[in-house]
Write a protein that binds this DNA or RNA. Structure first.
Lengths: 172, 172
DNA sequence: GGAATATTACTCGGATACTTTCTGTCCGAGTCTACCAGG
DNA sequence: CCTGGTAGACTCGGACAGAAAGTATCCGAGTAATATTCC
């Protein structure tokens, strides 16, 4: 599984903690998790393409959740990054080789493919039943210190306009 | 997921249909499914390394199941080919960045990693509950024609010694 | 004819290239903000 | 003082290299059956 899945889930969690009118740029998100900003933005683009996040350009622009955190499941994020294709792809090799029968004889699905599909369905079911909102809900009680720290960082990131922030530039 | 998983599961199914004293070489197995023999043997080696199959060298050698088909689960085969590592690997990125806390504060597992692990456990549970014997049991009733065809091919492959097969060689 | 032996052919196993996917980086198009000039 | 225009800087988005894993192939070590030779 792609590493970007982990990054994207954490990003969605953080975006869910942001006030609804504010947003975070890819640089801010990358800074929060200490990730390669350029590569991370690639995954954020995928989230936007999937309708999970919205993006705004220009100053004060960035990403925000496109809908409520309760409506975004883990599965959606995973599929947005890794694609909707199932991990196991049946090549129908049972229809090949000297002992094969005419194609019309294979009406039942391959038992191997069916089993793998069932396992994958169970996996997807688990991921579909957990949302970003669940993540947020468990964050406060389980890690109050981290939550407070995050809120402070968010207030710093979204609150003050960067109008007069570099009064003391380091010009030679 | 690697394509070799599909190949290996089909190979185990075919090996389960073979009489206990006989065995099939990698060339025979590859011929049955019309696969690249050299690459396919690589996966069969992995199955042997995992203790799923036994191998014999020399003429009349080949692969056979190392134990009963009922004791070989799909999960074992998948892990033999793709490795036992979980698909999702938690990079603990929550511990990075400017809002991170000292490492000792992170005693609870990452909620994201826990969710992904839970989904993967469900997937593994499904695969652990299906064995090669189940495959064999469903093969006959569901596809009698294919089963008969397979048995014929196996009788041809394991039965006659290839002593005097090339009486008409194509020499010049 | 029977048995021991050398030969032969066939098997697996690991070491070696090639392709696709994933990872990582960069620059351009578009947009909002802030500043400046004019009325 | 207010308004319009302009310049600037910041954002996303897609196009461009590098690394890793998966895919495909080959040849060598070892073994069991076979054919030969001798008794």
């Amino acid at each position: 599984m792609s590493e970007g899945v982990e990054w994207s889930l954490h990003a969605c969690h953080l975006l869910a903690e942001v006030p609804p009118d504010a947003c975070l740029s890819s640089l801010q998100l990358a800074a929060f998790f200490d990730l390669a900003a350029a590569y991370f933005s690639k995954h954020l683009q995928a989230l936007t393409r999937a309708g999970i996040t919205n993006s705004s350009t220009g100053p004060q622009g960035g990403y925000r959740l496109a809908r409520s955190a309760a409506s975004i499941s883990f599965l959606e994020v995973v599929e947005a990054i890794d694609g909707p294709a199932p991990a196991f792809r049946c090549g129908e090799i049972r229809q090949r080789g000297p002992a094969a029968l005419p194609a019309r004889m294979y009406r039942n699905p391959c038992a191997i493919a069916a089993t793998m599909a069932g396992a994958e369905a169970a996996w997807r079911h688990e991921l579909a039943n957990v949302t970003i909102a669940d993540l947020v809900a468990s964050f406060g009680p389980k890690a109050p210190a981290a939550k407070a720290r995050t809120q402070d960082w968010l207030a710093e990131a979204t609150g003050p306009r960067p109008a007069a922030r570099n009064s003391t530039s380091l010009s030679t």
